[in-house]
Design a protein around this nucleic acid. Structure first.
Length: 593
RNA sequence: CGGGGUGUAGCGCAGCUUGGUUAGCGCGCCUGCUUUGGGAGCAGGAGGCCGGGAGUUCGAAUCUCCCCACCCCGACCA
């Protein structure tokens, strides 16, 4: 039994000044966590209990799915990460340390290499597969900017699993097994979530989905369709391509003088202001223009390559989407020196006339999927002060391909073909599952023998759950104006017993008896037995701490013929008076239903 | 890493512009008395290297420079 009279806890009346997001504010105010380092938190007793509940649920669901728990050090040597290339790939985001002999170590941000090596160490036959292992570990990432309390720390607890299969079909099965386990897990955590298709990013690999808790303070933007179950991280949104348009009857492209129009806005104003350039039926808009942006791509092997991207002029290039589209290459802005090296590019007036591997610049030219054959554009004519009107894709220029780099907007059509508008929302990534493939197995030389005795390289999946982040996300999703409001399985206790009566009154003894009976029945009790604390403080603290059921032993006891206690549901605020004689049974029932 | 803001008691803040008592206020904490159904009252207390360092000055919380930390926006981000 937790007793507030001696529990290591101090609730704060005021919000801490350094906490902005609600979960962070309340977790500190209610005495769950304290900031201890930049991006690092200490757990206080009720916070740690709550954390352990989340961790336990994660563990139970992993075990129920047949995955086996292992545990690695957080302090790892350099070599395996050197072999996989991630010692350098991870860059500034990894904490590096050296030992007394000057050997390099890292504080692990994730453990693909160690799992792969452990399997390599012990297994050598296809008969040993499939295999799924997991651990629950503290991870370290030297985030440029930790924020939002537990939601984005530099030290956090993550459950990471890895599957090993002999072939694609096996990987697919392992992936599905994890996906289903995650669905059960997040359902049980009482956390709203959406599953969105995602990009696998720096981890490499193919199929990838994220579990996002839709929370306003989340850092990930995703879209979902009202009409179907399509949902995707904004980086992974697929742009539906319109049907091609026949060229017949399209007017020829004509080059015009358009002085001082280096931007889309100035160009649109210019063509609308000159009668001979006007659209026959309406005003031109930015969507009629084709904006061509040149970037420099740096490949992992150190080479660089320019890339031109054509997007409708009413949309910007979304750097995140572009990065996801060109990964593992990294895009960077085209510098003045780069322009100097490509004299065919007229800055501000770049058009398809010079772009493409077969044209003057020789620069690879990828366009937005909306730029289909037969679409007609106002775009740069490749000399300063000139644009071309009516340049038709497929007739007047031929891009090298398409690219998903244009920004996604609320209301964009769903890629399922229905054209239903997409909604945009923010979320916190609480889980990520993806098919890694053979990247790490190959890098670390993991092979097993197949039926014919030949070595084959297993294919892997990687699956993560942010355990400490989940706790914050649950807090975020459930809190209200009065404080935290935990789902029962997560809460540090089932019942918060408040003694609300004069010192020396009958309430104290009745509450002690009630609490003891509940404990004996396996109900977790937090008893506010503090002396000299006014009822108002007790009620406020109970609501702040957020235990799901609050039992108030107070004035109801005064009725000698029918003494009662009050049972309040933290979430709904509903209160019922319960006869003292039935209180224990009533509360046990409440906690079990 | 770029822009903006903030560091004064456990928490929330004032004081700084214009340098000069013993650095204040509310909450919390300690002692005593009263109070006990919605963050109680009175009285008395404890608690500060004013983020750190260097400087200017007879004198620095206050002015100058450097550093550090935290918050917000952006960049970055399993």
């Amino acid at each position: 039994m937790l007793r507030l009279s001696n529990l290591f806890l101090r609730t704060l009346r005021d919000d801490p000044a350094d906490a902005e997001v609600p979960s962070h504010r309340l977790l500190v105010r209610a005495g769950y966590i304290r900031r201890a380092a930049p991006g690092g938190f200490s757990w206080l007793p009720i916070g740690w209990l709550t954390f352990q509940n989340v961790e336990r649920i994660v563990r139970e669901e992993m075990n129920a799915a047949g995955f086996q728990e292992v545990h690695f050090p957080a302090l790892l040597p350099r070599e395996p990460y050197e072999a996989s290339g991630r010692w350098t790939e991870y860059g500034d985001n990894v904490f590096r340390v050296v030992d007394r002999r000057d050997a390099d170590f890292m504080l692990a941000p994730t453990h693909e290499e160690m799992f792969t090596l452990l399997v390599k160490d012990l297994y050598s036959s296809y008969k040993d597969l499939p295999l799924s292992l997991y651990q629950i570990q503290t991870k370290f990432r030297d985030e440029a900017r930790p924020r939002a309390g537990l939601l984005r720390g530099r030290e956090f607890v993550m459950k990471d699993s890895y599957s090993f299969d002999i072939d694609e079909e096996g990987l697919q099965r392992s992936y599905e097994a994890h996906r289903n386990a995650y669905i059960r897990l997040f359902d049980r955590l009482g956390l709203p979530y959406v599953i969105v298709s995602a990009m696998s990013g720096a981890m490499g690999g193919s199929a990838s989905e994220e579990f996002l808790a839709p929370i306003d303070v989340g850092e990930d933007t995703f879209v979902r369709c009202d009409g179907c179950d399509y949902a995707a991280n904004v980086e992974a949104v697929v742009t539906p391509a319109p049907d091609p348009i026949p060229f017949d009857g399209l007017p020829p492209a004509v080059v015009h003088d358009t002085p001082d129009t280096p931007t889309i806005a100035t160009l649109v104003d210019f063509v609308n202001a000159h009668p001979e350039l006007r659209h026959p039926e309406r005003d031109w808009t930015a969507a009629d223009t084709l904006k061509n942006v040149v970037m420099m791509l740096r490949h992992p092997d150190g080479t660089s390559e320019p890339l031109a991207i054509g997007v409708p002029g009413d949309r910007d290039v979304d750097m995140k989407r572009l990065e996801a589209a060109v990964t593992p290459a990294e895009p960077s802005p085209f510098e003045e020196a780069d322009f100097a090296a490509h004299p065919s590019l007229a800055k501000g007036y770049i058009g398809p006339g010079v772009l493409g591997t077969n044209n003057a610049s020789g620069i690879r030219y990828l366009v937005d999927p909306r730029v289909v054959s037969g679409t007609s554009w106002i775009t740069g004519a490749d000399t300063a002060g000139n644009h071309v009107i009516g340049l038709v894709a497929g007739r007047d220029f031929q891009p090298d391909g398409t690219i998903e780099a244009a920004e996604v907007r609320e209301g964009d059509p769903c890629p399922d073909g229905s054209g239903a508008p997409l909604q945009m929302a923010r979320g916190v990534e609480i889980g990520h599952i993806f098919q890694l493939g053979r990247k790490y197995a190959e890098a670390l030389d993991l092979t097993v023998q197949d039926e014919s005795g030949r070595p084959v390289t297993p294919t892997m999946g990687s699956y993560g759950v942010g355990v400490s982040r989940c706790l914050a996300a649950i807090a975020e999703a459930t809190l209200d104006d009065d404080g935290l409001c935990w789902p029962r399985e997560i809460a540090p206790a089932d019942v918060h017993v408040v003694i609300a009566g004069k010192e020396g009154g009958p309430q104290r003894a009745a509450a002690e008896t009630l609490a003891a009976e509940l404990e004996a029945a396996g109900v977790r009790v937090l008893l506010d037995d503090r002396a000299g604390v006014s009822p108002g403080v007790r009620f406020k603290d109970a609501e702040l701490i957020g235990v799901p059921t609050i039992a108030i032993v107070g004035r109801g006891l005064a009725d000698e013929t029918n003494p009662t206690i009050e049972v309040k549901d933290r979430r709904s605020g509903d209160r019922v008076d319960v006869p003292l004689a039935e209180a224990t049974a009533h509360l046990i029932e409440t906690c079990r239903s």
